[in-house]
Nucleic acid binder design. Structure first.
Length: 839
RNA sequence: GCGAAAGUGGCGGAACUGGUAUACGCGCUGGAUUUAGGAUCCAGUGGGAGACCAUGGGGGUUCGACUCCCCCCUUUCGCACCA
């Protein structure tokens, strides 16, 4: 008898069977309750590594268990196959992204099969396939029609290394999310999606997800959307023109002693134009704008500014206030201009101190000070050490004096502004429109044609997909090979029939992944992005599993697309993912495992050495799913050993186990009549079922697996006899081990199941249910404490009375010794658990 | 700075609503088997000679605290001039 089970043969055998029989293929079936389980699909970077495995092992465990619970489970996989690495690799190897990508997909597909994930392979999609991106373009076309996709010139995030523009969500701490290089600001034309139109819907939708999504993700999205209430106010510029500002503090308007514009603000250059200040202003703007995001926004960067020489009129008191340009004012937020209230805003305060600008207090901290010394308040702006940002009573504010700033002031000032037609209450969001133009080749072409007469016109639906030409050469620079490709560019305007030029930018790949979950419901359909009945049956995704790194990016975009598709009547759901499980990252050498960081632990070597089952089991056993996991090879042998022990138990007792099938009634019914020690095994069996079930419901795979291991320890410690009842007990134990492990170690479970004589596959079995009668112990251990410290134990019937427990506790010799002759002050008895004697 | 999560043996991690802290696994020690190694099996394994002491530190509530409350420290993550 070999010590190591033949995992290679076993895994190949079952993978072959699953492939051939197509057990994991599903069809829409209104009779059955559906369950849509989805893991975030991978970018086909080459090979699976243990970081990938975690995601897919978790997903597969859930999918397989749901199948065992009788659900019609949709569990598909595909490829997020557009993207820069393919293009860069192609340039480096003088190959083509198409080839590189499809080779990688082939490699990764075979690896997915090698680890036995229960996918419906008939639904496989690849976002770089024309049959897929046709519908990506179709959605873009709808967005164009609805005014959601639009073109504008603006300051955008530019990554020089990737030679392309990035969305705000793709800039992490001022660095490119992909290559970690510094991002610069550049003024460019490009396509944007008006995600801001959906800001309120996206925010509201988060409420619906509460409890089903990790709170962390909900909070991050909420902060990202960043809703704030306030007012917009128009300030007249002395000598003509006006500036609109957004403020959350209309109650401090009387304290606005200067204005500040973002350097990028269109008026910044104009205001000083032709004056002797023009040069200084120009220099300041140029210097500030050329700084990258980090240099400009890092903590502790000093506030700087320059005076434009011009003044605006405070609309409430008609005072002239100087207009400055300041580095801390952001063009992206609000209107890119602010009214500055140094007494009540720390940033304005620092700026005012530096440039010696007036500071006027308009909110008094408490009532008393207003009543006692009203005249002093007008003066003490200079005495402030920092801005007062709290609430209080309005002072120095004309007719508003004495009002509670928050309860009345804000509304009253806003009302007044509205009456005068110089402002109103408004809501501002931090969320910006999504810049989606990418100056790279390997992405979905934006289906737009420029015509000198008609402007940008979208390609008609019957001309979709706009095919990305594959017969191209790649310049070393990383510039897109289609940017100068006349055969692609030159076309006819669909509107007027005149000459037209195709857009050569491609779409951000996050667009491709914003709707793919719909496509799985009818992956090969040629006439629509998804069959309406199919998509209505399967969507939403019941359980989504993916990395926390997409908390904002992908998860926000996918929600936005779903709301848009719902809006145009293409789908019925409003939120794509009912429940979300964010698994922690797999860390190696202190960084998230990824190919670009060069710290990947490839899967194939490990699987070769221990088998797919042991590898999957280990990664689920090593830590709870949400926690980060520092990878080490060290523990995997334990999982492998465990499987070997189970295998040997079955192989070594195969005759008894088979004989056990002849006892027709099964062990649980006979628990009352069997020997005590055998009954303990039956109880352990059913307790394990109950424990694995409840742990699984909470996705605590690590403890679920631990309890099966513990059960095996109990089982192997017991000397089974060969009588029919013992055989039945052993058989039952082995059967449940196979069933409970099936979601984690499917090949192994299948093999065990077959070995003990089953002809139907274990993957078709139902999830076991513990027998309640077997969960109750015959005896329980009662602990005895003296003054809260453990001093003794005894066992008793689980329904032992409190009086009896107390009696038994005091009878314990050790306990007696600790009590001595001291008086007993109190005795606490927890039924069936513990006695605590207080002396 | 703000917000969130976390801190338990040599290591990964258990402990559901306060009730035997350290389940399960790794590693380590000793033994059995083996020509040897590997594999396997058995026993042991928080610290301390000990009464006792231990869940980041310090207080508190309680008969009883990893669990609840207060203060502090550390780590990780997110946000960070958002007007």
């Amino acid at each position: 008898m070999s010590n190591i089970y033949d995992y290679k043969a076993i895994e190949a055998k079952w993978q072959g069977r699953w492939d051939k029989s197509g057990v994991f293929r599903v069809e829409r079936d209104r009779q059955k309750k559906k369950f849509y389980l989805l893991e975030m699909f991978p970018y086909p970077s080459g090979k699976l590594h243990v970081g990938h495995l975690r995601n897919y092992a978790i997903g597969d465990a859930i999918a397989r268990r749901k199948r065992m619970q009788g659900f019609n489970v949709l569990h598909p996989i595909g490829w997020d196959s557009f993207g820069m690495p393919a293009e860069n690799a192609a340039i480096a190897n003088k190959s083509h992204p198409y080839k590189w990508t499809s080779n990688n997909i082939d490699e990764m597909r075979s690896q997915f099969k090698m680890i036995g994930i229960s996918y419906d392979w008939e639904r496989e999609v690849a976002t770089s396939h024309p049959g897929y991106y046709k519908w990506t373009q179709w959605i873009f076309a709808r967005m164009f029609d609805e005014g959601i996709a639009y073109r504008k010139k603006s300051f955008v995030n530019w990554c020089a290394t990737c030679v392309t523009v990035l969305a705000n969500e793709q800039v992490i701490d001022g660095l490119c999310w992909r290559c970690d290089n510094k991002v610069e600001q550049q003024e460019r034309d490009g396509w944007f999606l008006k995600i801001t139109d959906y800001a309120e819907d996206l925010l509201k939708g988060l409420k619906q997800l509460e409890g089903d999504w990790p709170l962390r993700v909900l909070t991050m999205q909420k902060n990202w959307i960043g809703k704030s209430f306030g007012a917009q106010v128009d300030f007249k510029i002395e000598g003509g023109g006006d500036i609109t500002v957004f403020t959350t503090r209309p109650d401090t308007l009387y304290g606005a002693t200067f204005m500040a514009l973002a350097p990028e603000h269109p008026l910044s250059r104009k205001l000083a134009c032709g004056t002797e200040l023009a040069e200084g202003v120009e220099n300041f703007i140029r210097k500030t704008v050329s700084q990258n995001t980090i240099e400009r926004s890092a903590e502790g960067v000093e506030k700087e500014g320059v005076f434009t020489g011009r003044y605006a009129v405070n609309p409430l008191n008609n005072e002239l206030i100087p207009i400055w340009i300041a580095n801390f004012v952001l063009i992206e937020y609000g209107s890119g201009a602010i009214m500055s209230v140094p007494a009540h805003d720390q940033r304005d305060f620092e700026f005012a101190r530096k440039y010696d600008l007036q500071i006027r207090v308009v909110i008094a901290e408490d009532k008393k000070s207003v009543e006692e010394s009203p005249e002093e308040l007008a003066l003490d702006g200079d005495a402030l050490v920092e801005a007062y940002t709290g609430d209080g009573l309005m002072v120095n504010s004309g007719p508003f004096n004495g009002l509670d700033n928050r309860k009345e002031g804000m509304a009253k000032v806003a009302e007044y502004l509205k009456e005068k037609g110089i402002g109103e209450r408004t809501i501002n969001y931090r969320l910006r429109d999504w810049g989606v133009s990418r100056q790279r080749y390997w992405g979905a072409p934006i289906p737009i044609i420029y015509c000198d007469k008609c402007g940008p016109v979208r390609a008609p639906d019957d001309q979709l997909p706009v095919i990305l030409p594959t017969n191209v050469e790649f310049p070393e620079s990383g510039l897109s090979p289609i940017a100068g490709l006349d055969s692609f560019i030159d076309t006819i305007c669909p509107k007027c029939g005149g000459p037209g030029r195709r857009e050569t930018d491609t779409m951000d790949t996050f667009i491709c992944s914003s709707w793919y979950f719909n496509r799985y419901t009818s992956a090969r359909l040629k006439t629509a992005l998804a069959d309406r009945e199919d998509v209505d049956y399967w969507m939403p995704v019941d359980q989504y599993v993916g990395g926390i790194e997409h908390a904002i990016l992908h998860l926000l975009y996918a929600r936005f697309f779903t709301k848009f598709l719902n809006n145009i009547g293409a789908v019925s759901v409003n939120e794509p993912f009912r429940r979300l499980l964010t698994q922690g990252m797999v860390i190696k050498d202190g960084a998230k495992m990824s190919k670009s960081k060069g710290n990947v632990v490839p899967l194939d070597g490990i699987v070769r050495k221990f088998g797919a089952d042991a590898t999957r089991l280990f990664i689920l056993f090593a830590a709870p799913p949400e926690r980060d996991l520092e990878w080490s090879d060290a523990g995997i042998e334990g999982s492998f050993r465990f499987l070997n022990r189970v295998y040997r138990l079955v192989e070594g007792n195969i005759e008894s186990i088979k004989k056990g099938a002849e006892v027709t009634e099964g062990a649980p019914g006979k628990i009352g009549e069997m020997p005590k020690d055998l009954a303990i095994i039956v109880r352990a069996t059913h307790k394990t079922i109950a424990k694995v079930t409840s742990d699984f419901d909470r996705f605590q795979f690590n403890t679920a697996i631990a309890s099966v291991m513990e059960f095996l320890n109990t089982l192997t410690a017991y000397k089974f006899k060969d009588d029919p009842l013992s055989c039945a007990v052993l058989r039952e134990a082995v059967e449940y081990i196979a069933l409970l492990l099936q979601p984690f170690t499917p090949h192994f479970s299948s093999e065990i199941w077959e070995m003990i004589g089953h002809t139907e596959p274990v993957t078709d079995e139902l999830w076991p249910v513990a027998n309640d009668a077997c969960l109750k112990d015959e005896e329980v251990l009662i602990v005895v404490q003296v003054n809260g410290k453990l001093r003794g134990k005894f066992s008793a019937s689980p329904d032992v009375s409190k009086e009896e427990m107390e009696k038994l506790a005091f009878a314990d010799e050790k306990v007696k010794g600790f009590i001595g002759d001291k008086p007993v002050r109190k005795v606490i008895v927890v039924p069936g658990k513990l006695v605590n004697v207080v002396i």
